[in-house]
Design a protein around this nucleic acid. Sequence first.
DNA 1: CATGCCGATTACAACGATGTAAATAGGCGG
DNA 2: CCGCCTATTTACATCGTTGTAATCGGCATG
Lengths: 337, 337
Amino acid sequence: MAARPSIKDVAEYAGVSPKTVSNVINDFEHVSEKTRAAVREAIEALGYRVNIAGRQLRRGRTGMITLAVPELDVAYFAELAKHVMAAADGRGLTVLIHQTGGVRDRELAALHGFDAQFTDGVILSPLALLPRDFATRDTRLPVVLLGESCPAGSADHVGIDNVAAAREATEHLLARGRRRIAVVGGALRGRLGTDRLRTQGYQEALRAASVPFEPELVVPVGAFHWQDGARAVGAVLERGPAPDALLCLNDHLALGALRALHEAGLRAPDDLDVVGFDDIEAGRFSVPSLTTVAPDKAGIADAAVSLLADRIDRASAEDASGHIVAHRLVVRESSGG
Amino acid sequence: MAARPSIKDVAEYAGVSPKTVSNVINDFEHVSEKTRAAVREAIEALGYRVNIAGRQLRRGRTGMITLAVPELDVAYFAELAKHVMAAADGRGLTVLIHQTGGVRDRELAALHGFDAQFTDGVILSPLALLPRDFATRDTRLPVVLLGESCPAGSADHVGIDNVAAAREATEHLLARGRRRIAVVGGALRGRLGTDRLRTQGYQEALRAASVPFEPELVVPVGAFHWQDGARAVGAVLERGPAPDALLCLNDHLALGALRALHEAGLRAPDDLDVVGFDDIEAGRFSVPSLTTVAPDKAGIADAAVSLLADRIDRASAEDASGHIVAHRLVVRESSGG
DNA sequence: CATGCCGATTACAACGATGTAAATAGGCGG
DNA sequence: CCGCCTATTTACATCGTTGTAATCGGCATG
């Protein structure tokens, strides 16, 4: 038998109808023990596996969900992926992971279910999507957004309170006597993304402490990778007097910055403090270890999967809801802990 | 229209038959310009998207492949995933990523195509599979194995020459005068996996240099994560006189080890050398930066995708082939570079 | 013994797309 | 104007699975 056996082959082998085989596969209760055994044996003998395409075509469901993230080599997303898989496992869902590269077209594809057609829903961590992209969204595909928020009401959303998190991190630095805190990866204008929200929290903390805000301490970066953090430090140091702290908007930036500082002969926390966001594994083992804002990744994953599963099950047109997940500041060596 | 529109809806809207719509979608040449335009407009108007399940059912192909790796939060796999996506893009293939957790059952599922049914083939990086698992393999699903080899002839394989790579890394350490080189993550018995092959290369280098092999310098680890590297260093230091070099079988182990050494007051490369495998991003930015064996990840990804695409296209029953991909030793600060 | 009921099994159609083969429509030469 | 040829379009069947509803057979009841 060259071709993959179908339910029909199994039926023939077992001497029953295809539908009975289907009933056995789906644990339908009214099947005699004898028949059930015969079918099981036939399945075993032929090495039959249910064909998901056929099943989906008929049922309209696959039991699979897609997790679409910008880049897997950003540790935060990789770690998140693990938690999402764990959360999905508990609900009998299988997760397929998709990289968008932060490219708008690919994110759109995920949002519209083009790539994700055979999954029942999508958990998407958008980077490049614009508000208008949500207007034309195909609302038949359940979507949960992570991190970046979106125009109200267009899709469920899960994330931490970015403003508060940045405020707390900044307060920590201020409490340590730091006054010239650079925001690596910060943004003052443009899309109201994570970067702007965090920068906002930073500004709030400064204001509350009556520390003047210096716009030139907001250092933009190309991307959120190690080398961008290193480059940013180069730029900052070149520009004039060194700041006394770096609030880096993710851990990769912070770790890249630590390296560049090291090369420049500056040490954290002696010469200046460094704080990151995400609490990735690398920050626990770096030298110095990295102070960071740790989002409750398991909580994010749980909430996202749970919201998505609800949408899928109820095909509900309920209004989109937002979930704020806990975070906490983990103080380590890079800011004196 | 609540439900997702099907090709039939488009046909009706455009006033043609479903098959004509199909012809337009698939760029069949004998379609009049007028009809083509009408169908295009209908597709646009209804927001129609081709249903992959239906297509696969009919065609037997999806244009998607699965990449199944143990853990995405092992940076090597995350980086590899990126290269695989790039390679696949070039061939018009879409990649779905799947985490096995290194759990045998999940790897088996990937191998048997259970999870991956709607993909045309699988690139699998196995950890826990046993030789006998390949015996019962469903050979209808094209599979390419990465890293770990497998019983000859059962599936295509792509990887670096682990023995040579470890030998070269060891030679580098020996050339620097190191004599008591610990192998973190090494193995002397058990499955002939990457760990054993690399340990073997290490032993070969020692023998060639007439340096006695000390079995207690082979330090087993639970997994290949940061904390395992740190733990291994703890064990080694407890046990007696410190080695003068650590050959860590991946970069995570090496970076975890660097941290533990730092805590123990030992510095690389002054007190001892540290070398890793994989050339992950973190090793370029660590303090000290990490000497490592860099596999040609793009080369691995290209070869894997290419082999897989061939199998899929030709449905060939040709004998399995093995591809050895280049590697090179990148010397950085942790071993004096 | 007829009737009704219930559990077990099955026939049939349908999900959406597309390959095959047949039908239809123009166009052109005769 | 007819018939043939080609370009375009269509009808139909099919991929594998499962929901619906019908059928079958056995058993208990009246």
